[in-house]
């Protein structure tokens, strides 16, 4: 089995990955080696978005990133979005809008919504729907998730 040792920079800190199988996805490394289970593992083919992370600020499915090839990048997971122990405004809006049911898709959606609102502070509904089209939720029907996005946009513009 082909292995490699390398270092990844995740949420502002360097992490050593010793003798990792080179085919390991970033998702597996985050969850199983680095103790960061926020990104969820469902489809392993980029269809569900539950493993969404930022790689050099680019919204990506961690399951489609070869971890050993992500050396030299800045990786941000849902755990690294807010200050230690504090909720981000998107996370708070999910609570306020009741956008969480089973919760499995939630971390990926939180990352995707931060990415969206960082690029477009007050997106129209169609823009939001397209931006979140790669994040599947099987519980909510998306209504309250979309409400949460609007809530964050309104709160940010008011503050």
């Amino acid at each position: 089995m082909s292995t490699q040792s390398y270092r990844l920079r995740v949420n502002g800190a360097d992490h050593e990955v010793a003798e990792g199988w080179i085919g390991e996805s970033l998702l597996d490394v985050l969850r199983d080696r680095l103790g960061l289970p926020g990104a969820k593992n469902a489809c392993e083919e980029g269809e569900c978005g539950s493993c969404s992370v930022l790689v050099d600020g680019v919204l990506s499915c961690a399951c489609l990133v070869l971890a050993a090839a992500a050396i030299g990048t800045e990786i941000t997971t849902v755990e690294g979005l807010g200050a230690e122990g504090a909720l981000t405004d998107v996370q708070q809006a999910f609570i306020d809008a009741g956008a969480v049911q089973c919760g499995f898709c939630t971390p990926g959606l939180i990352v995707a919504i931060h990415d969206l609102l960082d690029q477009d502070a007050s997106p129209e509904r169609l823009v939001v729907e397209e931006a979140l089209s790669g994040n599947l939720c099987r519980c909510t029907g998306y209504g309250r998730i979309l409400e949460a996005v609007d809530l964050v946009a309104a709160r940010r513009s008011a503050s």
Binding site: S2, S25, E44, G46, L64, V65, L66
Partner: peptide
């Protein structure tokens, strides 16, 4: 060779591809 990974990694994750050495083209 590995480009964006959106096909390559699906094959790896599903056990259909076992890379020996990888040339990542992203940089």
């Amino acid at each position: 060779p590995l480009a964006g990974g959106t096909d390559f990694m699906v094959e790896v994750n599903h056990g259909a591809r076992r890379p020996v050495r990888v040339l990542a083209l992203r940089a």
